[in-house]
Amino acid sequence: MSLILFTATGCARCQIAKKFMREKNLGFDEHDAIGEGKELFGKFYRAHRTAIVRGADGVEFPVLADGSEVRQGVAAAIAWLQAGDRLDGFIGRSEISKGWVGGLHVSKGDPAAIEDLVGVLGFLKRNGLKLLLDTDGRNAAVLERLLAQGLGDRVAMELKGPKALYAAMMGMPIDTEEVHRSMTQVAGFPEYRFETTVAPVVRAEEGPTGLRYLTPDEVAETALWLKVATGSHRQPYVLRVFDPQADPDDRFRSVEMLTPTALLRHRSAARRHQVLTEVE
């Protein structure tokens, strides 16, 4: 396997990726995408547009290629080198920088790959990057392990809704006891917050067109659950507006988008149990 690593002048994350490859004795060709390798990267980019994201600040480096796969960003590159695609669910593209690595989805990966995940996150952490984890409550055991290893500087937990609606909101069977365990774990990380996107939910009892947003009372139930799970009514809890157009579920396209003002009733309801609730 011939590895190519596109880097950028002054890119600290590229140095971390190179360090990992050297420690693993992985040979690679490096090209500075804004220096001598500019022309080569331009050609590579045009051939792999769909695999490389260009954000508002340009392309994030490093970009790793092995002839068949492309991985962008230090976490994704190292994860690929560590475990191939076995960590793909856990590690995605980071949308934050300045010392942080995001796109670390505790709930979306295969728990069987926990040792590789710990290895990758541990390497990133040892090299000075701070880890932003997210979870929706699934894979509580993974979260427990990361907490025990000190691998997580900040955690954002998306609380989908009250227990009774959690499976409907997720569109899959859910063990709410596991979600409960995750809430308890999240409160143990150095920084954390809980979030609920006030989204539409399919109300099975109302037939196939029974789509309605979470109600203020249902958000209050969620806040109460959070209070019971964590033993505190002072959790950082944020309510967010749902964007129907950005959701992959086509059923939501026709749903009217709420305004932040419309969530104030939800905030009032949630504050009955979580006094620090805010609308974002």
Partner: peptide, 17 residues
């Protein structure tokens, strides 16, 4: 120390800010 204007209904819910 900022100023905010809120609308509160009879039941005590903040419905505008």
């Amino acid at each position: 120390l900022d100023d905010s204007i809120i609308e509160v209904n009879w039941e005590g819910e903040v419905i505008w800010e």
